[in-house]
Simulated assay, not measured.
Amino acid sequence: MYQRILVPVDDSDTSAAALRESIRLAIDQKAVVRLVHVIDLAQFAWSANEFLDVPQLQDSLRKSGEQLLVKYVDALKQQSVNCESGLLEAWGGNLARAIVDDATEWNADVIVMGTHGYSGLTHLLLGSVAEGVMRHTRIPTLLVRAQAHG
């Protein structure tokens, strides 16, 4: 049913929960998993601060994203899950669009991603990449909520 599972990852508990769910789904469906990590290259570019080396900070974002993907790919391979990965670059915070575009190009059957499940003011202030993905794709999307920490 789901042969191609796209999983956006970061270093959060919600991402780890989505990853665990995608492993179960991939093993059950004998599917391939594509892990993607999105970095926002505009994160530091707006700063006119002469003390920031923007290209160096962007390279640092890329390196940390690549290291995160290697860690997660290794974890999936230990579970005998067929996987691949990709580092996606966004400009100006449109992370959801980068995920949707990659999922569409890769022909994903499902997107599995974590969500905090915030509502109200917290949601308004933090926004939601998961909500953005849901709004901009026709690909079925499974949202996985991590356990809240007291």
Rank of each mutant, 00 (worst) to 15 (best):
S12L: 07
S12T: 13
S15Q: 06
A16N: 12
A16C: 11
A17N: 04
A17H: 08
A18M: 00
L25R: 12
L25I: 13
A26K: 02
I27K: 15
I27L: 14
D28Q: 14
A31H: 08
A31S: 10
V32L: 10
R34K: 14
L35Q: 02
V36S: 02
H37Q: 08
I39S: 00
D40K: 03
L41V: 11
L41K: 13
Q43W: 07
F44E: 01
W46D: 13
S47I: 05
N49I: 00
L52Y: 03
Q56R: 15
L57R: 06
Q58H: 08
Q58S: 13
S60Y: 02
S60I: 00
R62T: 01
S64P: 03
S64D: 11
S64A: 08
G65Q: 00
E66W: 00
V70L: 13
K71C: 09
K71Q: 07
V73R: 12
L76C: 03
K77T: 13
Q79R: 14
Q79S: 13
V81Q: 07
V81G: 07
S85Q: 12
L87Q: 03
G93K: 02
L95V: 12
L95S: 11
V100D: 08
D101C: 02
D101A: 10
A103W: 05
T104V: 14
W106E: 05
W106K: 06
N107H: 14
V110A: 02
V110M: 02
I111P: 08
M113L: 12
G114F: 03
G114W: 09
H116I: 09
H116C: 08
G117P: 06
Y118F: 15
S119K: 11
T122W: 01
L124H: 10
V129D: 09
E131H: 14
E131M: 12
G132L: 06
R135T: 06
H136I: 04
T137E: 04
I139D: 02
I139H: 07
I139V: 11
T141P: 07
